[in-house]
Design a protein around this nucleic acid. Sequence first.
DNA 1: CTGTTAGCGCATTCAT
DNA 2: ATGAATGCGCTAACAG
Lengths: 342, 342
Amino acid sequence: MATAARALGGYGSVSAAAKERVAQAAKTLGYRPNVVARSMITGRTNAIGVVLADIENAFFSSAVRGIADAARAAGQHVILANTDEDIEKEHAAIRVFVERRVDGLIVCPTDGTDRTYLRGIIEQGTPVVLLDRRIRGLRADSVGIDNHRAAYEATRYLLAAGHERIGVVTGTASDVEAALHRPGLVGVENLVGMTGGERTAGYRDALLQAGIEPRVDYVVSGGGYRREDAVAATKELMALEEPPTAILPLDSILSLGVLQAVRELGLRCPRDVSVVGFDDAEWTETVTPPLTVVAQPVQEIGARALQRLLSRIDGSRQRPVHETLETTLVERESVGPPLSEG
Amino acid sequence: MATAARALGGYGSVSAAAKERVAQAAKTLGYRPNVVARSMITGRTNAIGVVLADIENAFFSSAVRGIADAARAAGQHVILANTDEDIEKEHAAIRVFVERRVDGLIVCPTDGTDRTYLRGIIEQGTPVVLLDRRIRGLRADSVGIDNHRAAYEATRYLLAAGHERIGVVTGTASDVEAALHRPGLVGVENLVGMTGGERTAGYRDALLQAGIEPRVDYVVSGGGYRREDAVAATKELMALEEPPTAILPLDSILSLGVLQAVRELGLRCPRDVSVVGFDDAEWTETVTPPLTVVAQPVQEIGARALQRLLSRIDGSRQRPVHETLETTLVERESVGPPLSEG
DNA sequence: CTGTTAGCGCATTCAT
DNA sequence: ATGAATGCGCTAACAG
């Protein structure tokens, strides 16, 4: 009888009495609904796919934590895929997820992602929310921070401390690196889906507003987002004829690299170089000196992304919204006055 | 015709010619197999559930990375659940996973897990592999390190440096804390599923072997696995009449707390206190001083756990094996000679 | 409100 | 080697 099914499935209308009896019977029989069969009918799997660069990276693991908590509250499951910033892996992961019939996707696209692939997925009916990165011209919500503004404020903070020669250590993929090196840093913000681009633009504009001409050789990238890359980049920076007196690494791993390079060069922070990092990792107040950072509400970014995805899954058809959460500049001890010429 | 199904599903026998034609037709029609329907028939979902305390913790995110890589190679998907060391959440997560018909489970049980719950799951037919922690009397494989030996060696290293008063900062849940405080630390290793217990036993035995009587007041727990707990625990330790000259924090977050406390107390490491931590987190060589640690091959632990799970899923019925991977003592600069009495 | 019927898309019999 | 028929466990649509 279908009444039993209705009672157990929680749909249609069932009398309270019947519902009670069915629940009782189900318990004694040890009945467990078959979720797979249900999914086949309803077309919903209650699973959402999360596609990111690397779960080992603290930024992503915090984001996933936020997503997972919100998902659990909504009865959704989180499936994970790492891309290592590799576009092939990203596409493969997404393809497999839609084949698996996930209800929706949260993706943090790799630098320079082509927007057409994701466009196809969306048009085909799988809702997508972008996390951290944002792709212009794509009908997808996104949740992140105002990267331009965050970098702008960090730079102004350094400027206010008296620094005029400020270096940036970024982790741009090599194929867009060239674009990063145009005179005056013109157009960096247009690099597709690049937080690094937007942040560099914020840095540039703060400089410009202070009447300082941005120097191309002050923006360096080690090629990847690994610490060794940042170490090399920092050494390159400090080997310049006029080395910067302050450095702005664009994520937490890069900050670690900058700090390491500073130490390896026999320099001291903040006496010889000041540093303002991105992301308030667990170790930021334990390193020497405690690191001043731009903190993002990472868990909340994840939670909001899931929220947005849910409303899309529930059929929301409003035009894409780009949600931007507030960052905080956490002042610690890695910024001091610039070293006077010596 | 069933031939098409056979060709696409890759089972039964099909002539090469037919296979070719079917593949062609499938491509032009844009056919995508319905994984959900397939799962209903085969009973396999190609998904494995991973249950751990907190994905934000570097140990777990590395383990998940290892699991995910191995899973991808095997065509399996990884579903995540965080328990926050809460037994209720752990049970709930596991229940939902088996209801979802995952092919298997990798679980890192919370301290003091009752073994009966998992036993039920296993007997009911879902393979389980334990990660990091291990539960005696449970018919499940486990993958981790030799906790006793790792702590034993770390302690001997400290002993060799001349330390005789060595403190331990652990993160035991409060309900088993009492057991940690028996005179002579007798029986700590029997605490169910506790890496902390085994490690404390290793510490105790190294002391004993050196002819030093273990002191109960040198083993402290802040109650949880948070940094603040370790800060408090360390301060408690250093406030003793005869404070230890070296400290052994039992995981990376706790190490951070110990380092922070040392600094807040105005002490210097290793001049005033030496420290040997567990787990080679990304920041260990960037803090001051670079931290000497017992490193575990965490990604590999995850990968091996998945491997073991797969062979169980494929029907292996051999008796449970407990796999133990090698640890490495990474010497850096946080250990020096003990501070002479003064 | 409840019972009956049909069918989701596939894998697996059984024939041929 | 192939085609036809059956059923996995459930929900949806319809009748009563």
